[in-house]
């Protein structure tokens, strides 16, 4: 097991990501943030919290998207039980920042874009990820904001721990047995 981001490093990275978002979206008047269920929402929750603090805009539109029904492997893997989708606003004509914790094959993001389009036509979609597992992509998908880039092999797994769920903030790389 190797620690990729410690508690302190993770905190710095989150702040950097939030500031990068503010650079491009200023006050988030026409930008919505959408976290991907189930594991991206802890990250998106933290980012939105920081964005509110930095911009002073308390009404940043923030939703959660579940992509279970849009997966392309319904018949090849075990059936997945969906989490809640909660997008209480229109994304029509807005800029949308999709947020997930780990970018690996890119298939989740492919599904997420399909799912998102069913809610309307955003002006632009951007992708923010905490960990980018480089060179593992199966689709031409690239993040716009990256917390940490790591080169991994198939037998490795990245695990992101969150204080509110796991009792600690940490990102580790493990070897699957």
């Amino acid at each position: 097991m190797k620690t990729l981001l410690s508690n302190k490093q993770l905190d710095l990275t989150l702040h950097r990501l939030a500031h990068q978002l503010v650079e491009n979206h200023i006050n988030f008047k026409n930008t919505a943030v959408i976290g991907l269920q189930p594991r991206g929402i802890h990250l998106s929750g933290r980012i939105v919290q920081l964005l509110k603090k930095i911009t002073g805009n308390k009404d940043i539109e923030y939703g959660k998207l579940d992509i279970t029904f849009y997966r392309d492997d319904v018949h090849t893997s075990e059936i997945h039980v969906p989490s809640v989708t909660d997008i209480p606003f229109s994304i029509e004509g807005k800029k949308v920042v999709l947020i997930d914790d780990v970018l690996y094959t890119g298939r989740t993001i492919r599904s997420a874009m399909d799912a998102l389009i069913d809610f309307g036509r955003p002006e632009k979609v951007e992708l923010l990820v905490l960990i980018d597992r480089r060179f593992s992509r199966e689709l031409p998908i690239h993040p716009d904001y990256t917390g940490y880039t790591v080169d991994t092999i198939l037998t490795q797994k990245v695990i992101v721990y969150w204080e509110e769920k796991d009792g600690k903030d940490e990102v580790v790389l493990i070897d699957k047995v």
């Binding site: 849009y70 069913d118 309307g120």
Partner: peptide, 8 residues
């Protein structure tokens, strides 16, 4: 939703 369909 407006689009009452998923591609599962």
């Amino acid at each position: 939703r407006t689009i009452k369909k998923v591609p599962s």
